[in-house]
Structures are given as structure tokens and as C-alpha cells.
Design a protein around this nucleic acid. Sequence first.
RNA 1: CGGGGUGUAGCUCAGUCUGGUAGAGUGCCUGCUUUGGGAGCAGGAAGCCGCAGGUUCGAAUCCUGCCUCCCCGACCA
Length: 439
Amino acid sequence: MRLSQYFLPTLKETPSEARIVSHRYMLRAGMIRQASAGIYSWLPLGLRVLKKIEQIVREEQNASGAQEILMPTIQAADLWRQSGRYEDYGKEMLRITDRHGRDMLYGPTNEEQVTEIVAAHIKSFRQLPKSLYHIQWKFRDEVRPRFGVMRGREFLMKDAYSFDIDADAGRAAYNKMFVSYLRTFARLGLQAIPMQADTGPIGGDMSHEFIIVADTGESEVFCHADYLDRDVLARSVDYDGDLQPLVDEWTALYAATDEMHDPARFERAVPADRRITARGIEVGHVFFFGDKYSKPLGATVSTPGGGETAVHMGSYGIGVSRLVGAIIEACHDDKGIVWPPAVAPFKVGLINLRSGDAACDAACNDYYAKLNQAGIEVLLDDREERAGTKFADMDLIGLPWQLIVGPRGLKGGDVELKNRGTGETEELPVDAVLTRLAG
RNA sequence: CGGGGUGUAGCUCAGUCUGGUAGAGUGCCUGCUUUGGGAGCAGGAAGCCGCAGGUUCGAAUCCUGCCUCCCCGACCA
């Protein structure tokens, strides 16, 4: 993409409404435009990141055996009356009336909708287990939206639902999701820590929040330092095998949000030099809730013995749009964003320091073509701006690599490659750069 | 939902107390000079001053009502 043609409205100054770093950088980097409180339009750069996150989430969901569907944003109120949540949900649910006077709502979640689908089509234990997910926009009419896309009213969420014959089978489904979440966040470049969450009236240990540590996190979290240097991607996972040992490994050490925190137990379980107290952002939640929705909505199956039973369900969310903000919270410096390579909108920014100079233009066009040919996503800054402006914008939008071409460096035949994260630069022949970036 | 603010150019903000031709910086356009970390000079375009009503010869400014957005708290992926 050529920046001279790209729609990238960067801002030099920080819009006054943005208080936290991810919101500021998303506005300044031209990723989003606020439409109203907690509701945003996604501009090209922001959308590229959103789509990359979405795709990684999708790949890992598929790998775990879940199947993608797509349910509507607008749902019928009757469905929610059956589960009893139409009255319970309160003002956070955006209620709409259609032209016929029917009560509708903009879905804040989809348990009812998916259970209705399963109730209609799954009749026998032989058709289980099933895990279905979708990636869809949700709306929760928060009293006070804030932190940009981290707590908007409209948000993109991956929500998955598992259906099983009994609680034991349900645990297997829960474990699959648990492991796929570990892998998903690791692939996004994040170190997410599963923390025991409140299971409410259901009880049990099958509810975890996945938290990433960032200075600007919303809540205080406590955990064992060992969680911060684990590499879940080092081992391959067999989703058909027994995942319990792996889940146990990830739940053995102490990790709790402030609401579940037990200071005495924390001090007992974790050596003083390994205790971490930090701020955390919730990016995912897995929860097993049995027959809470299947019973009222009639999602029952025939059992091997000829009887009938309500299916056991779990639901599993990942805040896709929230992750864009969360990643920035975890990955930035005072100049701008530092994207983890897997979610970066482009892999490399090719900076022409002297647009209009024949040698620079020719070299940039050559590199640009070669990078594109190699399948490396490149953003070429071919604008007629000064060097300082180009450096500042490129640092702000945080592409992992900067390939810097100017009259000074061009003489030696090498080009300058700069790592956005470390700030290290090196001079390399063009072919070596291509090899480096292709890896 | 309680409390506190805010609304003037794309962005950051003066001007409002004390009514009298709509301002600055930045960004944008033009030209010249510059050119490896947000340049210099000159010229230019750009605003129903949140909306509606009222007071007044005259309202960005005073009064009334409404709306918006932000912050603190309670609440949440």
C-alpha cells in the first residue's frame, strides 16, 4: 500500500476525550473514529488489526474442533422471556420495537439464540458433543462507556458454546476451549494468565478469566511470577487426547483477580520473591453452566438408556475488539504503538526520506515491488513530507520493521532496517532484508 | 444511576465574568527556500460559537429548557 493513497488520518495532537494510552494511540494513528459514546467506526488501519486478531481467534477455534456459525445481532424478545433473562438483564440490554410492535433486542450475548438452534436440531446423545462459535458484534448499553474500544457499548466478540451429554463430557469441552485460549493469546503476542473466576450459583471450578498484565489495567490481579515466562506454543496439542494434565499445569499456581484474591493463601502458596501484584485486563472468559439455558429452552437429547436429559453447556468469550486496545496497552512506548508481528497491520514500513528524488523513488519502487512479490505486507511512505514527519508517523503506527531509504544511505548500496521494538538498526543488502523479513 | 465538568475551524484551546464586526497554534491549500527525527518565510481557504426558545437596538457572551461528550463513583467482555 502506498501511503500517498491510503486513508490514514494521523493526528499530531491528542484528542482531549482520550485518557488512556491505547485510546489515544488508536485515535492518533487513525485507526478508529468515535461515532458516539462507546461506538466506533473502524478505519483502514484499525480494521486490518481487528481482522488479523479475528482470524487468529478463528484458526484456533477451528483447531480445537469448534465450528463457526453466524447468528444475528437482532434477536426476538420472546426467546429471552423463555430463559427469564428479558426481565433480569436490565437497562444494559438495548430494547427495540419493530414496525409491527414486536419486542426485539440488540443481542448482548447469544446463549438463548444458540440453544434454540441446538434444541431444534440435536435430538440424540449420538449427535454430541458439539461446540459452535461465532464472531459477531454485540451491544451492551453500558452506563458509562470508557477507555475507547476497551469498554465500548458496541463490541466485536467471539463467543463459543459447548453442548454435551453430561458434566464429565462438558469438562472435556471446557478443557479444549481453555487450551485453545492459551494458544490464541500466545499467538497474538500476549502472555495471558488464566485466573479462577466466580462461578456464582453454579459452583465448581469451571470458570476462568484470561487476564493480560498491563500498567493501565482496570483491576488489580495477583499471581505467581512463573506464569509470565511460559511458552504454550512450544508444544503441539492433541485436542483428541486428554487435556486435563495441561489444564492442571496452568491452574496449579496461584492467580486471582481482586474479587477472588485471598491474601493469606497467596502468601502461603507463592514465595515472596515470586509474588506479582499488577494491573490486569480481562480478554477472555470460559464458563461452564450446565443446564441453565437448555432446560428452559427445551434443549434435551435422548440418552443411551432411552431417557431424556437436558444438554450441559458452557460458554466461552473472547473480546476481539477489546483486544485491539488491550494489545496496545501491553505493547507501546512513548512514541506510539509497537505491534506484535502477528497482528501488525503491515509487516514493514518502507520510508522514502526524499520523495521526488529520482534515486530514492527508484529504489523505493524496486523494494516495494520485491516485498509485495515476496508476500510481505508493506506500507510505502511516498508522501512529500519531511523526514521527521515520516519517522514520527511510522513510529506512531508501530509497524514491526522500518526500511529506511534516503540519499545518504543509498550510496553504499545497502538499506537500513530498523526494528521498531528494540530500536536497533542495521545496514543490509536488499536481498538480505527480504530474507530477513520473509522469516 | 448519583456527583462534577464540557461543547467556538479537522485537532489543541483562548474569548463568556463585564453583550458591540469570530480568534490563536497546529493541520489543510499555493508559492519560494529547505530536506536523516513533527522546518522557515509569504499568501490563502476554513466556523448556524451543541440545539431551541427568551431578554436586548444588538447575544459565542445574560436567562430558561433540551441534547452531546468527558471525568469520579457504583456496574461490566
